[in-house]
Amino acid sequence: MELSQHWRLKQQRYSLVGEICPYCEGKIFPPRDICPDCGNEAKTTFQFNGKGEIYSFTTVRQAPAGHEENAPYTLALVRLEEGPMVAAQLTDLDDQAVEIGMPVEMVTRKLRSEGERGLLIYGYKFRPILKAA
C-alpha cells in the first residue's frame, strides 16, 4: 500500500488547494513552494475555484495497471481560470463530444483503488459545467 504517498497530497487532490506567490501573485498548482514564474519562495496556500477550460484531450484505451477498470477514460489538460494547467481525467461525459476550449469544472472522484482490500484514492477530475439555476 502506498498510504503516505497519497495521504500527504490529500488537500490538493481533493479540492485543488495550491499556492499563491507573495511576490508576483502567480497562482501555483500543483504546489511546489517555489514560484515557477519569479523563483521566489511561495508557500501561501490558495484555493482554486475549480473552473477551467480544455487545452487538449485524449482517450486512453490501453490503461496502465491500476486503471484498467476505468478504461477507456478521457484525459485532458485543463487550463484553470487562475492560470495554471492541470492534467486530469474528464468524467460524466457520457457521449458528449469534448472540444478544445470547452469549459469544465472540478469534481472529486475516485481515482483508483489499490485492489479490493486496499485504500480508495480520491482526487480531482473535471466534467462539463453543470450550470447552476
Binding site: 481533493y14 477498470e69 476505468n70 460524466d92 469534481v107 472529486t108 475516485k110 480508495l120 480520491y122
Partner: peptide, 20 residues
Amino acid sequence: AGLDEDVITMSIEAARNALA
C-alpha cells in the same frame, strides 16, 4: 452512480452545493 462515484464523492458534491 458512475464508475468513479461512491458515497464519498457524492457527499462531497452535495456538501459543496450546500456550502455554496
